[in-house]
């Protein structure tokens, strides 16, 4: 949102790096684990703890938006199966 669109430069292009925990074609777990890690990180270190934002970047890059929306809804209802 604070992204001034014109100021975007080639160096700004960054994405979720290769994670040696998930070396396979199947990246489902990379997405899910990063999502859980983000909210668990926030729960433990507080909402303003900057290093947590790394997980957010990763799961936004890797997870389909529909999945994130579904999990967000589940967390609000309290039916999210993961350990946060």
């Amino acid at each position: 949102m604070s992204f001034a669109a014109a100021a975007l430069k080639l160096e700004d292009l960054k994405t979720a790096p290769f994670d040696p925990r998930f070396p396979n074609t199947n990246q489902t777990r990379y997405c899910y684990q990063s999502y859980v890690d983000y909210y668990r990180c926030q729960k433990i270190r507080g909402k303003d703890y900057a290093p947590c934002e790394y997980f957010k970047k990763v799961f936004h890059s890797v997870c389909p938006n529909a999945w994130v929306e579904k999990w967000d809804a589940q967390r609000e209802e309290g039916t999210f199966p993961g350990n946060i």
Partner: peptide, 14 residues
């Protein structure tokens, strides 16, 4: 074919 080193962008396709 399996190898992925340091991707520049990620594109999701559904």
């Amino acid at each position: 074919l399996d190898e992925i080193n340091s991707p520049m962008i990620t594109i999701k396709s559904i």
